[in-house]
Design a protein around this nucleic acid. Structure first.
Lengths: 222, 222
DNA sequence: TTCGTCATGTAATGGGTTACATGATTAC
DNA sequence: GTAATCATGTAACCCATTACATGACGAA
């Protein structure tokens, strides 16, 4: 009944926070903007949406505009079900955003968490990035020792696979180093939050990213 | 019936082909030598082993050596169940090895397939490598167009995530290019397979790997 | 008119983990 | 003697996919 996916729930709430959407559109955003990592199917998404509605975090808007004209009549298409985040849903999402525990930096979660860093407070960003980095470093350590013990007994292809795998992890660590450095630089520029956790801490100003190319953030009017 | 994992089945058969092992040891090999990718639990492994036995691809050796002395008496340990590949199992594994279809180069399978390239014939290796490469290239193409369409509407973090993701894929493509080149060079050295596909093509001589040149440090101990 | 895309959903199935149950052996 | 590791297994659950069912619209 529940279908408490965690990661999907988080992503859906986060996307709907920007603007209401219907399921079909949501899935596309999930697999392009956030995508790369996972490609959720409708069989996963729709039941999840229903569950979120049951929790009171979303509301369905089957009908049309404020005049009561059904969407079907307006668009001609099959009645879309537009999902909108409720205040309770927004609150819940912000609670999830504030978590910086181990779950946040595991393989499956980290990408999605990162995708919503724009809505995440700077100190949570830091903890997540550092957590991820130390996670990868301990993994690297394991790989190194395991490799040292078995190097002789492995054939060339297995060895090459191992080498490439380790290089990939090392590369991600370097990436994280850059990001952490940038975050720290950004933090130094402005006095960091005194003590209180302001409830309006979203819109957490984008403190720092390595300069590749930024561009602008025009408002998400749709 | 049960638990036809495909990838696990393949890896188990491949490891047992080298030498008989019991479940516990098998799992460790699975998560170190082949590891990095997946970490199978006993809840997955043991039922899988039973299923493979039921198929006649493995036999359990609960007892001791040829003299009939039980292993318990020999080692003192709890009776291990040593699994040994049957001729039918070996045949089955070699059949799996010869497949070079799309399943072989998808994310989940490719790593394990590569790990057993030492047992794979050269032309299959080529097809798998090239298949993987074109798979990644088409993924890259999708990412590029999707990025081009939505670049303006994405915030800096999402953009950075996308950029890093694409770079990772590009990096793997370059890796594959090197590998393919090496394979081709190895092939040129001694023109194999005149026209027919030799049935005894296993023990495929390790034709080519980038011999630790060009950026690959052979010794990670710093 | 047929095909591609939009749009929503469900039932069966798959593939895997977690937690549990059990117990022997080794190292301290 | 007790903790860690070796060693095998099962049942309950979880998350997600696949295949299916339905149907409307736009364009060729």
């Amino acid at each position: 009944m529940s279908r408490r996916s965690g990661i999907l729930e988080f992503a859906v709430l986060g996307l709907l926070r920007e603007s209401p959407m219907h399921g079909y559109e949501l899935r596309k955003r999930l697999n392009t903007s956030l995508g790369v990592f996972r490609a959720f199917s409708y069989g996963t998404l729709y039941p999840c949406l229903k569950a979120l509605v049951a929790h009171g975090w979303l509301v369905e808007e089957t009908g049309g505009g404020p005049d009561g004209v059904p969407a079907t009549a307006l668009t001609g298409r099959r009645a879309k079900i537009v999902y909108r985040l409720t205040p309770a849903g927004k609150e819940h999402f912000e609670e999830l955003l504030s978590h910086s525990g181990p779950e946040a930096w595991e393989d499956e979660h980290f990408g999605v968490r990162f995708a919503f860093f724009g809505q995440t407070s700077r100190d949570v960003r830091m903890r997540v990035l550092e957590g991820r980095r130390s996670r990868l470093e301990e993994r690297l350590e394991k790989m190194r020792t395991s490799l040292a013990r078995t190097r002789e007994r492995l054939d060339d292809y297995t060895l090459e696979l191992q080498r490439h795998g380790m290089e990939s992890v090392e590369r991600e660590v370097r990436w994280l180093n850059e990001l952490i450095e940038s975050e720290r630089a950004g933090r130094d520029q402005r006095a960091p939050e005194p003590t209180a956790q302001g409830e309006n801490d979203q819109s957490a100003d984008t403190g720092g990213l390595p300069r590749h190319r930024g561009g602008s953030r025009p408002d998400p009017s749709e």
